[in-house]
Structure formats: structure tokens, C-alpha cells
């Protein structure tokens, strides 16, 4: 680079803190990343549930009452929406990282994603079956 060129004033645009509101795809990306907060909340809620159950029948009942307060239900509905967003985006993107081969040929991405969604359905069914007293 010549000295002459180096002297020339460049215009350097700055990325604003709110860069993600300007585009739908950026917004969806930020929502996807924020889903992790609700994954953490899910862990807290789950551990509280287990703790209550371990403490005995009374505290388990108390937990159930606490969980049916309106603001708790609203919070959990929002959390559910975010973890579902997490699950859908996660399984859709999974084939990008994994190249699954069958007899040396790479499997089409749709099938890899399909396998993930099938596993999701099975896992959900098994959990529901256990919780609802099927075993």
C-alpha cells in the first residue's frame, strides 16, 4: 500500500447494538439463541419438581399448586414455545454438521433431519408413557 493510499479517509460503518432487529432472519437467530435461557429455566423447574417429590407427598402437592398459579403457567407456556423453537431449529440444522453415510453414499439431508424428528417423537412418547403411569 502506498503512503498516498494509506492517507485516504475510509468510511467504517459501525454495527449497532440492535443489528438483529433489522432483518427477520437475524431476529429469528436471536430468538433461537435466547431459547437457551429457557432451557436453563427448564432445568431449574425440573430440579425443583424432583426436590419437592423427594421431600414427600405434601410438598409434592404444594409444588403442583404453585405450578398452577396463572403467572407460572404463562411463564411455562413461553418457555415451552422457546424449547420447541430450540428443538425444531436444532434438528433442522443437525444434518449440516453430520454427514451420515449409507454404503459409502451420503444420505440426503432431509432423511438425516427426518431421523432426528422421529427420535424426538419416540423420546416424547416414552417420557409421556412413563410419567402417565404406563410402567
Amino acid at each position: 500500500m502506498t503512503a498516498n493510499q494509506a492517507d485516504v479517509r475510509r468510511y467504517r460503518p459501525r454495527t449497532s447494538v440492535f443489528w438483529w432487529v433489522h432483518r427477520r432472519s437475524y431476529l429469528l437467530f436471536v430468538l433461537r439463541e435466547l431459547s437457551c435461557v429457557f432451557v436453563a429455566w427448564f432445568v431449574v423447574y425440573l430440579v425443583l419438581l424432583v426436590a419437592a417429590a423427594h421431600r414427600g407427598s405434601d410438598s409434592y402437592q404444594q409444588f403442583l399448586e404453585w405450578s398452577s398459579r396463572p403467572w407460572m403457567v404463562v411463564l411455562n407456556l413461553v418457555a415451552l414455545a422457546f424449547v420447541v423453537l430450540h428443538a425444531i431449529t436444532w434438528f433442522t440444522l443437525a444434518p449440516k454438521a453430520m454427514v451420515v453415510r449409507l454404503q459409502g453414499r451420503p444420505l440426503p439431508a432431509r432423511m438425516v433431519a427426518g431421523g432426528h424428528f422421529a427420535a424426538w417423537a419416540v423420546a416424547s412418547a416414552v417420557v409421556a408413557w412413563i410419567v402417565l403411569g404406563g410402567w
Binding site: V39, F42, Y45, L46, L49, L64, S67, S68, M72, V73, N76, L77, A79, L80, V83, V84, H86, A87, W90, F91, A119, W120, A123, S124, V127, A128, V131
Partner: peptide
Amino acid sequence: GGVVSALLAPILLLLFGVIFPL
């Protein structure tokens, strides 16, 4: 963590956060 939470969190939250409380 992304895989296990995607597999299990939605159903558990659905049951214990929404279906039973409602």
C-alpha cells in the same frame, strides 16, 4: 446438551408446566 434438551425438554415442560397445571 442441545440434543438431549431438544429431545426431552418440550415434552416434560408440556406435561409438568402446562397440561397438569391446567
